[in-house]
Nucleic acid binder design. Structure first.
Lengths: 345, 345
DNA sequence: GTGAAAGCGCTAACAT
DNA sequence: ATGTTAGCGCTTTCAC
């Protein structure tokens, strides 16, 4: 009775021996590198299949790459992020790269922990989605590993950036509401404290776009912004506050679908009917917004394209770390639904 | 003008030199291993801080552990999974382990790709949430790396398992509806084809629980199951079919909240009022269900506990790979809301 | 309690 | 085109 041998993993040495070639040859085949004849390639591939060999990423990383891409996103619960993710994995599907996600991070400290963990694991590239860390920190990360930042406006020479045009998105909403006949259009924004970060954050851009749009439509006097947060709770509170106005707005532009959810909840509680008594629009065009019984007018960010662009740019940068940084700004579209209608008055 | 040195990473050798000790000593301190005096520990820790040293996980993995836990989950979009995830990360927060998620996998092939990628990256343990791969494949994975399977019933001697009692959950719903006075209670289940897998899947258990509950309440004649899938589309189609019944059910138990969403959509379209004309209950108690304007009666699976239990058990198994496998079955509770009410007739 | 040295699986530089 | 060899950063014997 032999003790059950703790089955050693098949290594490149086993493959080399089995194929009667050197380990170098195997390595070259694995990486599709120059310097292996077709016959050699065939021989090696056969051996790989027969032995069920799979390279050990950690060992590869010690000298070369790990073929691993890390994606950091702030909150798994936000139904917009899966769209981006699909775009990323779609673009990477027929490459040797494998994607791993960091667990949701809510604060700067969490972001730092996750990005460090990714770097420590030798990941070849990072995609940071809507990070809140200061730009200096992002640049430190990017100088350690190829990095694409998604959802931060502004230009960096160290990292590449993919954004959606949030100003344009806000314009779409305001114009849509104005076209319906609304004048008293209020906005609920995410309160931003950090002065260095403010100009780069999508939420600030949306509020800015709202202001610009209102002015350009001659509605400057009607500008009405409530500052809470991009959460359901924030939407709820913001809506409550808007209901106390002497002249109640006839339409509310929430900075995110999740905020609109809170708004809808508050209005339902207050006995208001949407859109008969008041119109509501969101941002992100989440599945929530698309859900029939809710049918929320929203802005579609083309998350899939954002993701595939980010992945493509990251691969380019991995291939050439010296190349000039790239900025891509995509254009949103409006998804008009049943929560917006002409004002009753 | 020096060319900007491509800043080499700080290694254990740098730390050892800086602290005037051997690399062995540093390694011991890192792993809290036996054989280092308090003074030595202090000295090394100081050097680590001063140099900003962080161990390279890939290199560690070549000999020991990578301090990485992989979590695979079928679909990021399902709002139930983040709860489990929070439970996992919460339990792991003050350990040295870092969690990474595989990107959503929908099929067996995808699951295999992700789990292989995790193993190839030397992950120390895996948590597989609601996997659909055949049991034999799960056991193969588990024999390569410590594994906890979440949401699969049945007992394995190779992997540990954490489940929620789906039969009990179905009972909760049926009893709740019966208590309200319903008799014609229909169920929408996820169609399962694979005969070997069927007994292990939560969806099958829920359908089973529904049948048992109906019988035990003397409603065996009213059993009415529509077989579609656990998607919004599946709920929509299932509801459509139920509406064609000669004697329409007065209540529908959807096997998952996402299914209930589709049911609600179909009923809204058909001009039916919920719960006045017909009651609807879901399963999972997602944020969707809790959302005020929807307010869906649902079953709460205590996702957080599921996650923390899975993480705890995984750590135990990493510590002792020979120990007997463990099964934990948690108990669900009912979250009654506004989509269920006494039947009108 | 401490350190020297071997080696984990792979790639890259350097022969041939 | 192919093979030999050094070494990536760390942990682990095994001496002392």
């Amino acid at each position: 009775m032999e003790p059950p041998a703790p089955q050693r993993r098949v290594t490149i040495v086993d493959v080399a021996r089995h194929a009667q070639v050197s380990t170098t040859a195997v390595s070259k085949v694995l990486r599709n590198a120059y310097g292996a004849s077709p016959e050699m390639r065939a021989k090696v591939r056969r051996a790989i299949d027969e032995l069920g060999y799979r390279p050990h990423a950690g060992a590869r990383g010690l000298r070369g790459q790990t073929y691993t891409i890390g994606v950091m996103l702030p909150d798994i619960r936000n139904p917009f992020f899966p769209e981006i993710l699909d775009g990323i994995t779609g673009r990477l599907a027929d490459t040797d790269y494998q994607v791993f996600l960091g667990p949701g991070c809510n604060g700067e400290k969490e972001e730092a922990r996750v990005t460090e963990a990714m770097i420590d694991r030798g990941m070849d590239g990072l995609i940071l989605i809507a990070p809140i860390s200061p730009r200096a920190h992002l640049e430190r990360i990017a100088s350690a590993v190829p990095t694409v930042v998604v959802g931060r406006h502004g230009h960096s020479s160290v990292y590449d950036a993919v954004t959606d045009d949030d100003v344009a998105g806000a314009f779409l909403v305001v114009r849509h509401l104005a076209d319906l006949g609304h004048r008293r259009i209020a906005h609920i924004e995410h309160h931003e404290t950090d002065p260095t970060r403010i100009a780069e954050m999508p939420n600030a851009q949306r509020a800015d776009g709202y202001r610009q749009a209102m002015r350009s439509l001659g509605l400057a006097d009607e500008i009405d912004i409530v500052s809470t947060s991009y959460t359901q709770q924030g939407g709820y509170e913001g809506a409550k506050e808007l209901l106390t106005r002497p002249r109640r707005p006839t339409a509310v532009f929430a900075g995110a679908d999740i905020v609109a959810m809170g708004v809808l909840e508050a209005f339902t509680e207050a006995g208001l009917s949407v859109p008969d008594d008041i119109s509501v629009a969101g941002y992100d065009n989440t599945t929530f917004a698309a859900f029939g019984p809710i049918s929320l007018t929203s802005v579609d960010q083309a998350g899939h394209e954002i993701g595939s662009n980010a992945a493509r740019i990251l691969l380019d940068r991995i291939a050439d770390r010296q190349k000039k940084s790239v900025q891509v700004k995509l254009s949103p579209t409006l998804a008009p639904r049943r929560t917006t209608a002409p004002p009753s008055a």
